[in-house]
Amino acid sequence: MSNIITVKDMCLWYGDHKALNNVNIDIPEKSITAFIGPSGCGKSTFLKTLNRMNDLIPGVKITGDIRYEAKDIFGRDVDVNNLRKEIGMVFQKPNPFPMSIYDNVAYGPRTHGITNKVQLDEIVEQALRDAAIWDEVKDRLKKNALGMSGGQQQRLCIARALAVQPKILLMDEPTSALDPISTSRIEELVMELKEKYTIVIVTHNMQQAVRVSDYTAFFLLGELVEFGKTDDIFSQPKDKRTEDYITGRFG
C-alpha cells in the first residue's frame, strides 16, 4: 500500500514555544490512522498542519518537509484552498453552518465552482448517503441544520466534508462531544469510509483507536514516540513510554 502523506523532520513553533519536534511519519492510503496521546501532546496541532489549517493561527512557524501525493504542501505552486479540498476536515465540536442542511452540504461544491442544480443535488445526496444520514434528513433538507441533534450534526459535517470529494479526511476527536450511541454510529461510519478515503483520526480514547484504526501513532510532549500497526502498538509496544501510556500509567 502506498503512502499518501509523507512527513520528514517536521517541527512547529507557536511563537517561541516549540510544539512539535522532529516528526517523521508516512500515512498509508485508504486506511485509518489514529493519533493518540495525552492532551497537549501536539496530536491535534499536527493534524491541523496536514491541511494547513494552522496557517490561520498567527505566529505559527513550521519547518521540515510535508508531502501530499509527493508534492510539498507548502510549495509555491500549491493553492491552499485546493489542498483543503483534497484533504478535508471534521472538527471536534460539530460545526454546521447556520443554514439549511442542503446548503451546508452544497457549500463545498459551490465554493469550488459547481453551480449546476442537478449536479449539486446529486453530490448532496451522495455525500449524505456516504455519511449514513440521508434517510434521516431527506425529507427536511431545507430545514436549518442547527435544529439537528449533536450526533446528526457531526454526521452532517462529515457529509459536508465528503461532498468536495476529498482524498483524505482528517478527524479531530470527532466523537468527543457526542453521546455513546452517536459515537458508535460515527465509528461504524468511519470504518465504512476507509474503503474510499484515507482517514486520519485524533482521539483521546484508546478503545476507539483499537476499535477503528489500522495504524496508530503515539504522541507525547510534541514528539512522535511510536508509529505502527495498531495491533502491534497495543500488543507489543516498542517504546517504554507507549507502554506506560496504553496501560494507563499516565495521561
Partner: peptide, 12 residues
C-alpha cells in the same frame, strides 16, 4: 468554528 468549517472545505 464556522470560519474553521468553511476554511476546512477549501473556501477562500
Amino acid at each position: 468554528s464556522y470560519r474553521e468549517g468553511a476554511f476546512g472545505l477549501g473556501a477562500g
